[in-house]
Every structure is written in structure tokens, then in C-alpha cells.
């Protein structure tokens, strides 16, 4: 009997050990990208600002430009708020750009914060000889994109439609690394949707011309270049383009399941606010080359509500632009 009772005790204790509470940030992309980097930065600090100081871990759940993890979080029935999602900001525009896709509802998910509000940029290699955004629009350039739901596709598609530009979008790249190498090789002549943080990596600024800035307001921290929205004349096109570019205002959002109670949402938001204000966190972010452009969860939800309340005609125009 002794071995039997010992066995049962072992199994029981291990079963309970498996339930130890850990807060997980599920990243919708593979390790190494900017979503992964910011999540790991948060994971290293957030626990200290939450009740009970839980361990915070990062799990990578790549797929469909983070729609996979967003859908999983939407379906998460737990009410403890122990699983956060690090997802693409463009998902907030899913009801606008792909109304038939009900995998993610930005009005039901709780936004805890956004870690960045940085603009994106259009770039071309020096070797193309293209010097300005206007030249780019008439160049017949091939621009690289990953999937059709990604901002590497929606941004150039919207620009093409708004300006009647003579550019082509090549889709199917596995990641931005492949797009960049294809530009180096001369197969592609441009990329729209690169962040300021990526632009300052390696010696990119010495090899590329920054053609224009994608965002709803000129950035204070990125490279100085033409602000694309200022160049659109037609008011309707400008409004639609602004809607599409608004994703940059909530870059790197963090979400939690709709089932999470308001008190827990508030606690998570307060922890993020306190963490970002902490000097240790800021120093660490600087050391890792991460540009902080923090916005609170309440702010993010207000921004999204504003976007979704846009005139239906403008939303329809935006949707057509990114087809």
C-alpha cells in the first residue's frame, strides 16, 4: 500500500503545482520582432506593479498577423485577466476594413494600453534613384507586403488608391526581413509600413531614402520627411486615408479577454500606467532601443470608438481602398 499512497500523493501534489498562477503575454508574432521585444520588456517589469507580484511570461502564438491570438483571447472564458494579448493595431479597424470577418471585435475586447504611437514610413533604396514621394507615386515601383491583412499591404494599397499611384504590391513575403532583402537585391523598389525604431536599426538610414510619413499627425521622434496625409487633396480620400493610418496611433496595443471583470481591467491598466512612469522601466526601454509612445487603455478605447464612429461613406471608401 505504501507505494500506492506515495504515488497518489505525488500525482495530487504535481497536479496542483501545475496550476501555479502566472500572467502570460501572448504575442501574435514569432520571437524577435518588435511585438515580441516590447512584450518581453513589459514582462520583465509588469509583475512588480501587480498585486501578489505574479511571474509574467511571454508566449509566442504567431499566425495571420496576430488575428489568431486575438481570436483566441476573444474566446477565452476566464475572468482572472491572467492572459494578455500583444496584437496588431490594425485589428481595431477590422469592422471597417473587413466587416464580414467577425474573428475579433475591438469594441468587446478590453484594451489595457498601447506601448507605442509611432508613425510608419515609406522607404526606397538609394539605388532606385527615387528621391521624393511624388516621384515614387509615378515610378511603377514594386512594393513588398506580407499578408493582405498586414499594414505592409493596407498602407501602400491605400496610398495607391488615394493618389492613383503607379505602384504594384507584391504579397507573400514571410516577414519584413524578406522584404528588406528583396529591396537590397533590387527586386523591390519600396516598402510602406516600416517603423521609426526599425529605420534606425543597423545603417538603414544611410542606404534608404525616407519618402513619406504614415500617421495621423507628424511624429516628434522619427526622421523628418513629407507627411503623406498633407498631400491628399480630396477631402473624402483624406478622411479615409486618415482612418487607415490611424492604426499608427495605437501601435503595439495590449488586450485582455472580454470576460475580464471591470475591476481587473482597471487593476491591469493602473499597473501599466505605474510601470511606464517608473524610471527603471524607462531606462531599460532606452537600453533596448525601444521608443516609448505610451497611451492608456482608456485613451485607446476612446480612439477606437472615434474611428468606428466615422461616417459610413468614409468607412466604405477606406474599405475599397485596401481591397
Amino acid at each position: 500500500m505504501k507505494p500506492l499512497s506515495l504515488s497518489l500523493a505525488l500525482v495530487l501534489s504535481m497536479g496542483l503545482a501545475a496550476k501555479a498562477d502566472t500572467l502570460s503575454i501572448q504575442v501574435g508574432y514569432a520571437p524577435g520582432g518588435s511585438f515580441d521585444l516590447v512584450s518581453r520588456l513589459v514582462a520583465d517589469h509588469l509583475g512588480a506593479f501587480l498585486t501578489g507580484n505574479p511571474e509574467v511570461i511571454v508566449e509566442n502564438v504567431p499566425g495571420a498577423g496576430s488575428l489568431k491570438v486575438a481570436k483566441m483571447i476573444m474566446a477565452d472564458p476566464s475572468t482572472e485577466g491572467m492572459v494578455l494579448g500583444s496584437v496588431n493595431s490594425a485589428l481595431a479597424l477590422l469592422p471597417v476594413l473587413d466587416p464580414e470577418n467577425t474573428d475579433f471585435d475591438p469594441t468587446k475586447a478590453h484594451y489595457i494600453a498601447t506601448m507605442s504611437t509611432e508613425s510608419s514610413y515609406c522607404i526606397t533604396p538609394l539605388a532606385t534613384g527615387i528621391k521624393t514621394f511624388d516621384e515614387f507615386l509615378q515610378s511603377g515601383a514594386k512594393v513588398g507586403a506580407t499578408g493582405k491583412a498586414s499594414s505592409t499591404y493596407t498602407y501602400p494599397a491605400a496610398i495607391k488608391a488615394a493618389f492613383g499611384a503607379n505602384i504594384e504590391i507584391v504579397t507573400g513575403f514571410e516577414g519584413s526581413a524578406e522584404i528588406d532583402l528583396s529591396m537590397e537585391r533590387g527586386d523591390l523598389q519600396g516598402r510602406c509600413g516600416i517603423s521609426a525604431a526599425n529605420l534606425v536599426e543597423a545603417d538603414m538610414l544611410t542606404r534608404y531614402v525616407v519618402l513619406g510619413e504614415i500617421g495621423t499627425a507628424p511624429s516628434a521622434i522619427g526622421p523628418k520627411t513629407e507627411f503623406i496625409l498633407d498631400k491628399v487633396r480630396d477631402p473624402a480620400s483624406k478622411a479615409a486615408l486618415k482612418l487607415i493610418f490611424a492604426a499608427a496611433d495605437i501601435h503595439h496595443p495590449i488586450i485582455v479577454a472580454p470576460a475580464t471583470p471591470p475591476e481587473r481591467v482597471a487593476e491591469l491598466r493602473a499597473a501599466f500606467d505605474a510601470m511606464v512612469a517608473d524610471q527603471g522601466f524607462q531606462d531599460d526601454a532606452n537600453a533596448r532601443g525601444y521608443l516609448i509612445g505610451y497611451r492608456t487603455g482608456t485613451d485607446v478605447e476612446a480612439v477606437i470608438a472615434g474611428l468606428l464612429a466615422t461616417d459610413p461613406a468614409i468607412k466604405e471608401l477606406a474599405r475599397q481602398m485596401v481591397q
Binding site: A30, G32, G33, D36, A177
Partner: peptide, 15 residues
């Protein structure tokens, strides 16, 4: 060569 990671491991290394 370019600061372009060829794989997830290399992306982490680039970080």
C-alpha cells in the same frame, strides 16, 4: 551584412 535577421533566432540576436 544588413542587420536583417534571417530567422527568429537571428531576430532575437539582433535585439
Amino acid at each position: 551584412a544588413f542587420g536583417i535577421p534571417g530567422s527568429a533566432s537571428m531576430a532575437i540576436l539582433l535585439g
